Simulated scan of single mutants.
Amino acid sequence: MEIRHSVHPEDVKRLTAEELRERFLIQGLFQPDEIKMVYSHVDRMIAGSACPIQPLPLEVGKGLGTEYFLERRELGVINVGGAGVVKVDGTEYALAATDGLYVGQGAKEIIFSSADAAKPAKFYLNSAPAHAVCPTVKIERQSITPAHLGAIESSNERNIYKYIHPQGVKSCQLVMGMTVLEPGNMWNSMPCHTHDRRMEVYFYFNLPEDAALFHLMGEPNETRHIVMRNEEAVISPSWSIHSGVATSCYTFIWGMAGENQTFDDMDHVAMKDIK
C-alpha cells in the first residue's frame, strides 16, 4: 500500500509541478489482476482499484495493523468497467457498469471477480475508518434520482448521483457519489468551494485517451493545477479547492470523509477571490 502524508498549505506554495503530482495524484489504477491502494493521512482515506482477471481477495497487508481490511473500516465500491461480482463473506453482489456497493465495518472476506475476463470489471474503491456497523448494500445507478445542476452557458451542466449518503445508503462517515457532465460541458465544481470539515478524493474517467484535464487545487488565493488523464485520481485536503476543466466532457467519482456527512456543508469561494 502506498502512503501519502499530509501537506501544509504553506508548503504547497513552494512545490514544483512534479512535487504536486507526487503528493496528490494517483496513477496506475486498474492494473490487470492487481489491487492498488493509496493511503492518505488526510482523514486516513484510502483510494484504490481492483481489476480482476482471476478472483482477487482484498488483503489487509501491513499498512493497517489489523487482522483484516474492514476490521475498523468501511468500503465504497463503484464499478466503471465490465460486469463484475463482489463477494462479501459468501454473499455475491453483481455490479454492472456504474453500479455501486457499500460494505460495512466487520466484513472479513471481500473477493472481486469479473463476469468476463476479456472485459474485466474495474472496481474503484474508497475506504474510511469506521466506528459503527452499517449494513452492506448494493446500489444500482438506475435507482438513483440525480440532482441536475449547472447550465450549458457556463459549461457545467451536470447530473449528480449520490450513492452513499445520510438520506440514502447509510455509512459511518464515508460519503460517495458520481457526477456526469452533459455533452459539451467541461467544468466541474466551479464556482469552487472548500469544506474544512472534510477531505475529498476525485477520480476522473470517461475521458478520451488523448484528452487532458486540468484539476485546480490549493487555497483560493494561491491556486495550483495538476494535469490529469483518463482513470486517474487526485487527493484534495480539506483546505484546498477541488475543481477541474478538460478538453472533453467526462465523469468523476467523489468520495469524502471527515467531521460530518452534510453534502451542502461547503465554504463557497467568490469568483473574484480566486487567484
Rank of each mutant, 00 (worst) to 15 (best):
F252C: 04
E232S: 01
I164N: 01
W239I: 09
W187C: 09
M228Y: 10
P135G: 07
D196W: 08
W187A: 10
F214E: 01
T251P: 00
F203D: 02
P191F: 01
K170H: 03
T136C: 04
K170D: 08
K170W: 07
K170N: 07
I226R: 07
P129Y: 13
M176T: 03
I253D: 06
I152N: 14
L213W: 02
G177K: 01
M186A: 14
Y202H: 06
N126D: 15
V169W: 01
D210G: 13
W187Q: 00
V175H: 11
I226H: 09
I160Y: 02
N230S: 03
S240C: 08
E200P: 08
R229C: 07
R198Y: 01
H165V: 15
M228S: 06
M228F: 00
A151I: 02
G184S: 03
H215C: 04
R229M: 04
G255P: 01
L216E: 07
C134F: 13
N230Y: 04
N126A: 15
M217G: 02
P135R: 12
R141F: 00
A212Y: 14
W187L: 09
T251W: 06
P183A: 07
G168S: 12
P208N: 00
P220I: 00
S248H: 10
N188H: 09
I152C: 11
T251K: 00
C172W: 06
L149C: 02
N159A: 15
G177D: 03
C249D: 13
G150E: 06
V245Y: 00
E157W: 11
C192H: 07
H195A: 00
T223S: 09
C192V: 12
N221R: 05
L216C: 08
H193T: 04
Y161A: 02
M176L: 13
S155W: 06
S154C: 04
P129Q: 11
I144M: 10
G184K: 11
A246P: 00
P135I: 15
Q142G: 15
M256G: 06
H131A: 05
P129V: 13
M228A: 04
E232M: 01
